[in-house]
Amino acid sequence: MSYVLPVIFVVVTIVTMVLLMRRRVMKERFTVWWAILCVGVVIFAVFPSVLPFVAEHLGFQTPSNFVFFVASIMLVLMSVQFSVEISRLEEKTRTLAEQLGILRTQMEQRSSVTTVALTPETVQLIDNAEPNEGSE
């Protein structure tokens, strides 16, 4: 019965991940970490003697130290992954912004269409013209 709590944790995590993926608010590649975590938790919960055994053989004085160590490594790796993803997104956004600006300029030059120069006043007009409907 000692492993009821871990199993509940695993079930809740898996259900949450599946729900998030179904709603397409999270990509699969970000769920890999949580899947690895769930596998680890299940193993240590079902076979309670494994954790002290592994911890001792890896040179940890107490099993909890081993758990904290692995947890912090995972968190570090995840933040590195996020940093990489954010940098990529920033680069893509940057390229899109550049190309958008160029396209607008070229459109003006080639047709009689004139777009409005971006100034504090026009930005306010544009913002007011489009009430925020998309969210929720």
Binding site: A97, E98, L100, G101
Partner: peptide
């Protein structure tokens, strides 16, 4: 010619 970037890059 003016290229208006939508935000500061």
């Amino acid at each position: 010619a003016v290229i208006d970037l939508p935000f500061n890059l």
